[in-house]
Amino acid sequence: MAAIFFMASFINNYEETFFLAKDFEDKGFFYKVLGEFRKVLSDYAFIRADEYYHSGLTIQNRLNEKEDLFHESEEAHGESAKKMDYAKNPFPKGNILAFISEEVALSEHMHLHGGEEKELLPWLYYSVKLDPNNINAYVIGSDWLNTRLNKTNEAIDFLKLGLTENPDSWQIYEELGRISFFKEKNFNMSLSYFQKALALQNQDNADIFERGEVLSFVAASYEKLGDKEKATQYYKEKRELFPDNPAVQKKVEMLEAETEL
């Protein structure tokens, strides 16, 4: 009875904030049916995509590997399929059940390759269907579409869909900029996307490494367009963030020398 008593006010509050919200009618199917729980499912779908890339191995499985997850080599995450040693627990002597359990578990770590990457797309697709504000799913999904599956137009469409739901996302603008910069070689377009990303970044939604990355892209776009002064200006801005970074210092010096010539 006590639970019902307290639940009543909770349900009333929930009804007012959820069902009676002004824009409830415009919300999607998953929002109406699942409410905020859809965000949990969206994150779960995103994690499943990650597991699919590692052919079913969970993050916990990978943490058990000989090689630390956070130090996986670039080669291991490369284009080619790599079978890596998967560190099983030491053989549990005399414990036949633990032995069977170990043997049933997967024993090899293999990455999707050669077009198989398409298999993780449904999970990223459902991830954004469940939660249209899951920015990581848009960014990662478009990256797979563009870089591994050569579907640049679909990647751009996916990101633009993300922008309609998240117009203030600098991450999506940055990803659009990357596609324009690397794939389409349209540096005017990439510059406009990167500048938009830079304008949307602030102390709360981006750290200095993320800001530094976008600054580099803005500078690089100016450089490609032949505007070395502007490029120098943005590299200098990056240098203020990373005063001890010799690569940025060298880039500034090189551009300044070229400008003087």
């Binding site: 699919y52 298999e119 797309l121 579409l145 679909e154």
Partner: peptide, 16 residues
């Protein structure tokens, strides 16, 4: 019947 970015033969999620 789901269509994911116009890519054909995506099947593992159906098995799963």
């Amino acid at each position: 019947s789901e269509n994911f970015f116009g890519i054909r033969d995506i099947s593992r999620y159906t098995k799963d």
